[in-house]
Amino acid sequence: MKARVHVTLKPGVVDPEGAAIARSLGRLGFGGVEAVRVGKVFELALATSDTDAARAEVEAMCEKLLANPVIQSYRIELAD
């Protein structure tokens, strides 16, 4: 099965890259952008077809490597 992991900055963590993108969007005429936060998406192809096992394993991957819990949170989507 496949897993998609969204890693995003926790609220309160400054995101200078997102702020620069927001300013750039403003210069392009997109006046309605109040804030931009930049994150990462990981697409994983997993050998297992057991949803519970996959979720537990991907959570462990997030805790150990994919996300830095000091500044980031993560969300996992699973699909067949």
């Binding site: 400054v14 200078p16 620069a20 830095n68 500044i71």
Partner: peptide
């Protein structure tokens, strides 16, 4: 803690 991208990018 951690080290983020420089504030000035």
């Amino acid at each position: 803690g951690t080290l983020l991208r420089n504030a000035g990018l």
